[in-house]
Design a protein around this nucleic acid. Structure first.
Length: 512
RNA sequence: GGCCGGGUGGCGAAGUGGUCUAACGCUGAGGUCUGCAAAACCUUUACACGUGGGUUCGAAUCCCACCCCGGCCUCCA
């Protein structure tokens, strides 16, 4: 049995590397600091809950790294450059399209959706990255990067722009386990004229007609805009170095975007290395049989869940019930089940809080964790771990074992569920263990209450005052033993989506 | 057409060679409480590993075939 102390704990961390498709022991380049780059959103629309799942995954990754005692430098990019909806230089630019629809400038659109995205992450208790990297802030660096690619002889020019020749880099497509022969370019979209290989892609897109687009820059290849894949290579190398530890993204990126990014990295540096030690990809949130997708329309936003009465953290809990590498099947019933389970968990924690003593200094420290990086994380862990019993260590070992196994959060939740129901721990020690679990799961175990999980639905017919008024009336009716009247009110409230909870100290209620 | 992945009780979802007569949560059932309920708590149910072969002392876990389903090869987490 391993002894847990601050810093790297007992079980060696293993992560699943998409490059090679196998579980590997995690070893950082720098023994103290881990550098992580996560592909962020294109800000032409709101994020849907499937998009958000990806960041719950990166947040989990980050918390686990911090749990293991590392400082984490985490970069997320914001793609605010318009990219064509079609690879064939036809169709509209997504950003431009969104702007003309909203009758705003493209910059306003980008700012609006960037803010909305960050707010969503905040509501989900996702730690801010060390740095947000905005594509439009790096155009000149992209041009310089593209020039280097050109100098290194891995590109060729066409009327439509500058392209990367994927046969000029080593082993193109290995991340995707790509089968070059069997590919059907043009199966879904017409190909670009003049491309030498089906997998070649644009580094720079030249505008057909200069000055037509809102976002356009001069370049050695004519006025235009950078290719979509360019920004990630440029910004990750700029902020994390030519070789860094972890790159994350959705599984869809594993096939094209990241293969292209690798090709760019290789072409830029003139070697065969992908530039990243661990490529990690999260699976999709699905609904019924289909993946959730913006282009299909009718997607669910976090706000949609809130309007339906679900606290954002219910979605976080729901996301943690599945492995990040498995598809997760969303349904309202499943979300409701998560809300119920999460609520009961919090109620059990609340009982432990009543029984135990919780030094107030820790509440403040735990709060700080959200806004700071690894070092204070280590500090807090040291405080909480100081002198815990062997029983407590056993529970922490279980946590450590689960998260060390490629971030097995369902296992962590299972342990947590058993933990709060067991009686072998002193109350204050129980709280410390719970606080340590919460450093990883980020569910506000010690700060949230079950009542907060159900919100007033947007379409609720009654106001809180209405409800309170009716409850008062009901209480009086019960006192008068006018049960017919009392039950009528109860039925009415139930109809309106209100759950009544009678207790020894009076009547509480919540939205359903 | 090619490549990748998946099919576990009513639902979500772990588990990838023996501790699986399969974790955990939700649901269902009974009970406590209650004027009756609800909520909460306690107890409990369901003999679930897509199908057919094979390997092995032993398979949900490995191999083969088949049947379904999804993703990717346009932008997408």
């Amino acid at each position: 049995m391993s002894h847990i102390s601050t810093g790297v704990t007992g079980h060696p961390l293993k992560v699943y590397n998409s490059l090679g498709r196998k579980l590997e022991a995690f070893t950082p380049i720098d023994p103290k600091v881990v550098r992580v780059y996560s592909c962020g959103p294109t800000v032409y629309n709101y994020a849907h809950i499937g998009n958000l799942r990806a960041y719950i995954f990166t947040d989990t990754l980050r918390r686990v790294l911090q749990w293991k005692g590392y400082d984490v430098v985490h970069v997320i990019n914001i793609t605010d450059v318009g990219h064509l909806t079609s690879d064939a230089d036809e169709g509209d630019d997504k950003m431009e399209l969104a702007a003309s629809k909203a009758k705003q400038t493209i910059w306003e659109v980008a700012a609006h959706y960037t803010d909305a995205f960050k707010a969503d992450l905040n509501h989900l208790n996702i730690q801010d990255p060390t740095l947000w990297a905005k594509a439009t802030d790096h155009i000149q660096e992209m041009i310089a990067f593209a020039s280097t690619l050109e100098e290194n002889g891995v590109t060729y020019g066409l009327d439509s722009g500058l392209y990367l020749d994927t046969t000029k880099v080593a082993d193109y497509g290995r991340l995707a386990l790509m089968d070059h022969e069997g590919m059907m370019e043009g199966a879904r979209v017409t190909s670009v004229e003049g491309k030498r290989n089906p997998t070649d892609f644009a580094i720079w897109r030249t505008s057909e007609e200069a000055g037509k687009r809102q976002m356009e820059w001069q370049s050695p290849w004519g006025a235009g805009a950078p290719g979509w894949h360019l920004e990630c290579s440029v910004m990750s190398i700029k902020y994390l170095g030519r070789k860094f530890d972890i790159h994350t993204g959705g599984v869809d990126h594993r096939q094209v975007h990241h293969c292209n990014e690798i090709a760019q990295n290789q072409g830029y540096r003139g070697d065969e290395d992908s530039g990243v030690n661990y490529w990690m990809h999260n699976e999709f949130l699905v609904s019924g049989q289909d993946k959730m997708s913006k282009s299909k329309g009718g997607f669910l936003r976090l706000q949609t869940l809130v309007d339906a009465g679900f606290h954002p953290l219910v979605y976080r809990y729901f996301a943690l019930t599945a492995d990040y590498r498995s598809t997760l099947d969303f349904s309202w019933d499943a979300l409701k089940a998560a809300q119920t389970g999460y609520g009961r968990l919090l109620m059990r924690v609340a009982r432990h809080k009543e029984a135990g003593q919780w030094p107030t200094k820790w509440s403040g420290l735990l709060d700080d964790i959200r806004y700071s990086r690894g070092s204070s994380y280590t500090f807090i862990m040291g405080q909480l771990l100081d002198g815990v019993s062997e029983t407590a260590q056993g529970w922490l070992d279980r946590l450590d074992e689960a998260l060390s196994n490629d971030l097995n959060m369902p296992m962590v939740l299972a342990a947590l569920s058993e933990l709060v129901q067991q009686e072998g721990l002193e109350p204050d020690e129980m709280l410390r263990v719970l606080a340590l679990y919460d450093l990883v799961v980020g569910l506000g175990l010690l700060s949230m209450t079950a009542e907060e999980l159900t919100l007033r639905p947007a379409e609720a017919g009654l106001s809180d005052d209405d409800v309170n008024g009716l409850l008062q009336e009901r209480t009086q009716a019960r006192k008068d033993r006018d049960f017919a009247r009392a039950d009528a009110i109860r039925d009415q409230l139930q109809e309106a989506g209100v759950v009544i909870k009678d207790g020894p100290e009076g009547t509480a209620w919540s939205w359903k």
